[in-house]
């Protein structure tokens, strides 16, 4: 049975296959490092490891300027290592069959989003974590790093 972890960031919902979620932290301390890629807002320290904390707001089209509400961090396993995703709400675990998988309309293609999951009255973007991890640290978002330091401290 496939299950999703459902989360929200700045009013945009996202869904992650439960098998990829390691755990959810609340209010974990965030640290800066020099020259973090633009989409990486900080790093966490978890069990002696550094974990890049990714702010999905830009990728999901809800911006990265507003502070994140409740300060949850979802630790997710990707092919390229563990990443943390910032979230406003602690999320819920829902079986795929409790909702409905929707394809992305051709005009609404979003980077790293492979479909939508409709549950109750909300729609969540289903994330391709492996793709997002690379894309948001190495590709387009990587190029935002020149202003990242200053922006993060505003």
């Amino acid at each position: 049975m496939n299950r999703f972890g459902l989360f929200r960031i700045r009013n945009a919902g996202f869904a992650i296959p439960l098998a990829q979620i390691l755990r959810i932290l609340e209010g974990a301390e965030e640290y800066q490092l020099p020259r973090l890629p633009g989409a990486v807002s900080a790093v966490l320290v978890d069990e002696g490891r550094l974990i890049p904390l990714i702010d999905l707001g830009g990728a999901l089209g809800v911006g990265t300027d507003c502070p994140i509400g409740c300060g949850y961090q979802v630790l997710v396993e990707s092919e390229h290592g563990v990443i943390a995703l910032a979230a406003d709400s602690s999320g819920r675990i829902v079986a795929e069959k409790k909702g409905q998988i929707l394809p992305l309309p051709p005009k609404e293609q979003v980077i790293g989003v492979v479909g939508r999951f409709s549950y109750l009255d909300d729609v969540y973007n289903i994330l391709n974590i492996d793709f997002l991890a690379i894309e948001m640290t190495q590709a387009y978002w990587q190029n935002q790093s020149d202003t990242g330091g200053a922006r993060r401290h505003q």
Partner: peptide, 28 residues
């Protein structure tokens, strides 16, 4: 000792190559 995550190695390259932990906090 503390490894720089693979996903951050490109952005760190040329600026720093080692991070350590002091009382659980990263120090470059």
């Amino acid at each position: 000792p503390c490894e720089i995550p693979f996903l951050l190695q490109v952005s760190a390259s040329g600026f720093y190559s080692e991070v350590r932990l002091l009382k659980g906090k990263p120090v470059v």
